[in-house]
Amino acid sequence: MGILYSEPICQAAYQNDLGQVWRWVKEDRSFINVQDGFNGDTPLICACRRGHLRMVSFLLRRNADVNLKNQKERTCLHYAVKKRFTFFDYLLIILLMPVLLIGYFLMVSKTKQNEALVRMLLEAGVEVNATDCYGCTALHYACEMKNQTLIPLLLKAHADPRIKNKHGESSLDIARRLKFSQIELMLRKAT
């Protein structure tokens, strides 16, 4: 099902309806950064929630503000990093895994898409150390999700592993607590 938005352009971005988003932006350029009345999401945040690469690219080319925050004080980067495989993705991966490793390649492809999404946002100038209402940065979430492909990207963009969230925990503390030794080593090198 997903989320329902009060702003039609946000709903269209969430559903990856490029034609509809294009019509809204053509009508009024200010729609590009409109914030939904329900949760404050922008079209860019909506597209990042779902990992819609083409939509994100389209919005960025039209100067969508990567640093706008929603009511949870999250930017599009928080959602890009928090993006998980959907139940349908897992189902496809499991069903197709025995068939010439198609499931594995599907999983690799989805991971590469997410990496490309985060790379796009970083190149567009998103604030890598922005904190949300819990004091968490994108790096906190990448560590919680044990995302070894995104952590080096975030660190290269100067993500600070020492920033503490509202529970007093840094990204390094999270890696230690969850016993992710490879990630802990990566974070130690960055400090």
Rank of each mutant, 00 (worst) to 15 (best):
residue 3 I to H: 08
residue 4 L to K: 10
residue 5 Y to A: 12
residue 8 P to W: 04
residue 9 I to R: 06
residue 10 C to G: 05
residue 13 A to N: 09
residue 15 Q to P: 00
residue 16 N to C: 12
residue 18 L to Y: 08
residue 19 G to H: 09
residue 20 Q to I: 09
residue 20 Q to M: 12
residue 20 Q to A: 14
residue 21 V to H: 06
residue 21 V to G: 04
residue 21 V to N: 04
residue 22 W to N: 11
residue 23 R to C: 06
residue 25 V to S: 02
residue 27 E to H: 04
residue 28 D to Y: 05
residue 28 D to I: 03
residue 30 S to E: 13
residue 33 N to Q: 11
residue 33 N to T: 13
residue 34 V to H: 08
residue 35 Q to F: 01
residue 37 G to I: 01
residue 38 F to Y: 10
residue 38 F to M: 07
residue 40 G to I: 04
residue 41 D to T: 03
residue 43 P to I: 04
residue 44 L to F: 08
residue 47 A to M: 06
residue 48 C to F: 08
residue 48 C to S: 14
residue 50 R to L: 08
residue 51 G to W: 00
residue 53 L to P: 01
residue 53 L to V: 11
residue 54 R to Y: 07
residue 55 M to S: 06
residue 60 L to W: 02
residue 61 R to W: 10
residue 63 N to I: 03
residue 64 A to V: 02
residue 64 A to Y: 00
residue 65 D to Y: 12
residue 65 D to S: 15
residue 66 V to L: 03
residue 66 V to E: 01
residue 66 V to Y: 00
residue 67 N to D: 15
residue 73 E to Q: 14
residue 74 R to F: 00
residue 76 C to L: 04
residue 76 C to N: 03
residue 76 C to V: 13
residue 79 Y to F: 15
residue 80 A to C: 03
residue 81 V to E: 05
residue 85 F to C: 00
residue 86 T to S: 15
residue 86 T to V: 03
residue 88 F to E: 11
residue 90 Y to D: 14
residue 92 L to A: 06
residue 93 I to C: 08
residue 94 I to G: 02
residue 95 L to F: 13
residue 96 L to G: 05
residue 96 L to D: 02
residue 96 L to F: 14
residue 96 L to W: 10
residue 97 M to C: 08
residue 97 M to D: 11
residue 98 P to I: 08
residue 101 L to K: 10
residue 103 G to I: 04
residue 103 G to P: 05
residue 103 G to T: 10
residue 109 S to I: 06
residue 110 K to M: 09
residue 110 K to I: 14
residue 118 V to K: 02
residue 120 M to S: 14
residue 120 M to G: 00
residue 121 L to S: 11
residue 123 E to R: 11
residue 124 A to S: 13
residue 126 V to Q: 04
residue 128 V to R: 02
residue 129 N to R: 05
residue 132 D to G: 02
residue 133 C to A: 11
residue 136 C to S: 15
residue 138 A to Y: 06
residue 142 A to M: 10
residue 143 C to V: 10
residue 143 C to R: 00
residue 144 E to Y: 15
residue 145 M to Y: 13
residue 145 M to A: 15
residue 145 M to L: 15
residue 146 K to R: 09
residue 146 K to W: 03
residue 147 N to S: 13
residue 147 N to T: 06
residue 148 Q to S: 12
residue 148 Q to M: 05
residue 150 L to P: 01
residue 152 P to M: 09
residue 152 P to H: 08
residue 153 L to N: 04
residue 154 L to Y: 07
residue 155 L to Y: 02
residue 158 H to R: 12
residue 160 D to T: 09
residue 162 R to T: 15
residue 163 I to L: 14
residue 166 K to Y: 13
residue 168 G to S: 04
residue 168 G to E: 10
residue 168 G to T: 09
residue 169 E to K: 15
residue 171 S to D: 02
residue 172 L to T: 13
residue 172 L to W: 07
residue 174 I to E: 01
residue 175 A to N: 07
residue 175 A to Y: 01
residue 175 A to C: 09
residue 176 R to Y: 01
residue 177 R to E: 15
residue 178 L to N: 12
residue 178 L to C: 13
residue 178 L to P: 05
residue 180 F to S: 08
residue 181 S to D: 14
residue 182 Q to Y: 07
residue 184 E to S: 13
residue 185 L to K: 13
residue 185 L to E: 14
residue 185 L to F: 04
residue 188 R to P: 03
residue 188 R to M: 10
residue 188 R to W: 00
residue 189 K to V: 07
residue 190 A to V: 01
residue 191 T to K: 07
residue 191 T to N: 12
